[in-house]
Simulated scan of single mutants.
Amino acid sequence: MADREKQAGAVLTIDLGAIRANYRFLRSQLAGASCGAAVKADAYGLGAIHVAKALAAEGCDHFFVAHLDEGIALRPHLPASADIFVLHGPLPDTELEFVEHRLIPVLNSASQVAGWRQAARIAARRLPAVVQVDTGMSRLGLSRQEVENWLYDPDFLRGIDLCYLMTHLACAERQDHPMNAAQLEAFQALRKKLPQCRTSFANSSGIFLGQKYHGDLVRPGAALYGIAPVQGASNPMQSVVTLKARVIQTRVIDRGDCVGYGGTYRAAGRRRIATIATGYADGWLRSFSGRGFAHVDGVPVPVVGNVSMDTLALDVTDVSADRVHAGAYVDLISASQPVDDVAALAGTIGYEILTSLGARYHRDYVDTQTPRAAQRQPSTEFSI
Rank of each mutant, 00 (worst) to 15 (best):
S287I: 11
I14P: 02
N306L: 12
H362M: 08
A267N: 09
V39C: 06
R158M: 10
V230D: 06
I349A: 11
A359D: 14
V247K: 00
F98P: 02
A321F: 05
V366R: 15
G71W: 07
Y164N: 01
H214T: 00
L165M: 15
E146P: 00
A346P: 03
R125D: 03
I333R: 00
Q29G: 00
R198T: 00
P371F: 08
R291M: 08
A346Q: 07
L314D: 10
Y329P: 00
I14D: 06
Q377C: 09
L157I: 08
A294H: 09
F201C: 11
R198C: 05
L243C: 11
T13C: 01
S28F: 12
G215M: 06
P90Q: 04
A186P: 02
G45N: 11
S308E: 15
G347Y: 11
D42I: 01
G305D: 06
P128C: 06
C171G: 00
V147I: 15
F64P: 00
V301F: 02
V86W: 06
N108G: 01
S34Q: 14
D341P: 00
L209N: 03
C163E: 14
F85H: 12
A18C: 09
A66S: 13
D83L: 11
A222W: 01
A80H: 12
V51E: 01
I384L: 12
Q175C: 05
E146A: 13
G279H: 09
R360T: 06
H88Q: 12
S28W: 12
A328Y: 10
A31R: 14
R376S: 08
R270K: 14
D341T: 14
G215V: 04
L142N: 03
